[in-house]
Design a protein around this nucleic acid. Structure first.
Lengths: 184, 184
DNA sequence: AGACGGGTGCGGCAAATTGCCCCTTCGTAT
DNA sequence: ATACGAAGGGGCAATTTGCCGCACCCGTCT
């Protein structure tokens, strides 16, 4: 597997986690180095691409990867997913598209998921305004590595308010971290 | 073009609007009738499918359509889009995926958009909490045809509150309706 | 060491917002 | 006609926000 992710911590963590699951992972942090690495590989079953690589865009790697390894499963992992970008990625051949607070389980599931993914799951409309708000907050908070002040600024609300809101909800937030829900 | 949409008003409106743009539209309101209609066609350049057809799912039509008319552009139109469903639709061959408050212009643009859609647009993160909230409200409101009471119930907030919030924002919302922004 | 900048909790308080009850007007189904 | 659901809006009390301030912790620069 090839991992392209610019957040050092997350990259290492993913590499280790996937490594322990039996994946031989090559990790890079940019489109350029990813391409270089790609050229040296003789086999590639999967790729995990971050969309947001500084100025670059992980999308750019999809085609080169598939050109060389047509059967490679390309997974997109991004902080703020959007429908248009998900469509763009999928059209380019991505196998699946995940938004960032993704657990290892999510990633593995996304890899396995056959194209036969009949699951029309039909989310239909779970439009509880509060939940949506909460999820967004979690996403932003995660993006800022838990920095409440920063997240509040980006969200456009007062730091104190975010703080108060967070306290109200226990928030599971065991996202990517350590895939060991066992320990308390 | 083939339009499958279960909201009678929207269906007619789309048919008319697209008709006036030179598209010969066949409109149906269910997967079953869509399949039947499909069998009678000898040519099909585009399809506009609602994902939410009562108990059915518009996704089911993508494959039959493409099997018969491989070059047909399939557009998905849905009230509540989600990334997973967008990915599923695209993987099945949909050309693009739109969420409901979509204007005619959006639809036409989505149809034209060549796969060459290089636009990585990189929405990166426009996470203003308030905006997200507002957009969601608009979506839900639209889904309930402007019925404030119903929307408030679904959103989980008080009707009065929704009402007050709506009054504060002029809300452009010229979405699909009538493509005639001219009249007041 | 001491100053400084930035982040985290938390108390308090005025101001804004929400939730709720009530009332009126409408269009429509009974 | 009467009942019902919905939209608008008037109050009002209960929350929630926004905005200080303060204490404290941590790196870093002087």
């Amino acid at each position: 597997m090839l991992i392209i992710e610019d957040d050092d911590a997350l990259r290492d963590q993913l590499q280790r986690a996937l490594g322990s699951r039996g994946w031989l992972c090559h990790a890079e942090n940019s489109v350029a180095s990813g391409l270089t690495r790609l050229a040296t590989l003789s086999q590639l079953d999967a790729a995990l691409l971050d969309l947001n690589l500084g100025a670059d865009n992980g999308l750019a790697l999809i085609e080169p990867i598939l050109a060389r390894f047509p059967r490679c499963r390309v997974l997109i992992l991004t902080g703020y997913g959007s429908i248009p970008s998900a469509v763009a990625a999928t059209r380019r051949g991505a196998h699946n598209y995940l938004t960032k607070p993704a657990s290892l389980a999510d990633i593995l599931a996304a890899l396995d998921q056959d194209t036969a993914q009949q699951t029309p799951d039909l989310p239909d409309a779970p439009p509880s305004l509060e939940r949506l708000e909460w999820e967004h907050i979690q996403r932003v908070l995660d993006e800022h590595e838990g920095n409440i002040s920063a997240a509040a600024r980006v969200l456009g609300i007062h730091r104190r308010t975010l703080q108060r809101r967070l306290k109200k909800r226990p928030s599971p937030s065991d996202y990517a971290r350590d895939r060991n829900p066992a320990s308390s």
